[in-house]
Simulated assay, not measured.
Amino acid sequence: MRPVDGVGETPALPGKGPYRTVPWKIQGETMWRERPFWQDILKEIIEWRTLELREEIPKPRPETRRALRSLLAHPFFSPHARTVEAALWDPYFPLGMIRRTILADVTGMRFFINKTRPDIQEALSLQVAAAADLFLEAKRDLVRVADPKTVTCVPLDGRLHPLPSGGWCRLCGTCCQIGGVQAEPPPGVGYPPRWVAMIEGSAHPHQQLCPFLFQYFGRDIYFCAIHRIKPRACAGFGPEDCARCRTDIALHERDP
């Protein structure tokens, strides 16, 4: 028995968590069964993990771990289990941005994309897995090929540190909700070839976000992990650009 990518119209079952009607292929015939929808499970994990980070709970609680086991048992995620788990437990992984982009309906353009459409579920899951994989690679590289103390705006040692203050940036991450920019470094800096692909959005066929966009311990604070050597296109982004961006780039429906 194997699941077929799809989601029905059945609402959540009270008291039993988020369930959807999903088709299962059994000996060539499709049968509809109630089972958890992977997006709902992932949203629960994001919500719980965010609270844990904000409350400085050192380890995921049992309910968070149970939800993760359920997610990683899904055929879409089982091939990427170790990568997705490592990213979701990391205090700098942009949990909120995953929900704001990959899992959010597209509403701000001339067309509407319902992210529960059956035909795009596998592609969306691959985008989540790609975000996890590239984030972990970027974080490893900050130690392997660069000195994080001179590259990032905050130390990446797993502890809370004062954030930069006094500037105009709200650290909301909206300007980074794009697939990539031209990887032109500031004067005197050279990016490794792999970083060029990561910055320009071509490092993975399912890349949707910049891997250097980190979140600060579950808070609504996002920062560039290569802030001090960010591409010239990003460094030249000013308050007027920010105001325009926050109006024009609002493509995704926000959670109520």
Rank of each mutant, 00 (worst) to 15 (best):
R228M: 02
V84R: 03
F37Y: 12
V189C: 09
E240M: 13
R69A: 12
E44P: 00
H161M: 09
F223L: 07
P162D: 13
P231I: 05
P231S: 12
E47Y: 14
V4Y: 00
F214C: 02
S125V: 05
H80K: 03
A131H: 04
R54E: 11
P186I: 07
I98S: 08
E240A: 15
R69I: 06
W38T: 07
Q215F: 04
A132Y: 06
A104R: 05
E9T: 14
F93V: 10
F237Q: 07
Q127I: 03
R232N: 03
R140M: 02
K43H: 13
I199C: 05
I249D: 11
V4Q: 12
A225D: 00
T247I: 14
L171V: 04
P192K: 05
T116C: 07
C176T: 07
R246E: 13
L142F: 01
Q215Y: 04
Y191Q: 09
L213N: 12
P62Q: 07
F223G: 07
A129D: 03
I229L: 02
I113V: 15
R99W: 10
P211A: 04
K16H: 14
R49G: 09
W24A: 07
R20G: 03
R246G: 08
E184P: 05
L171K: 07
R82K: 12
A233Y: 03
L95N: 13
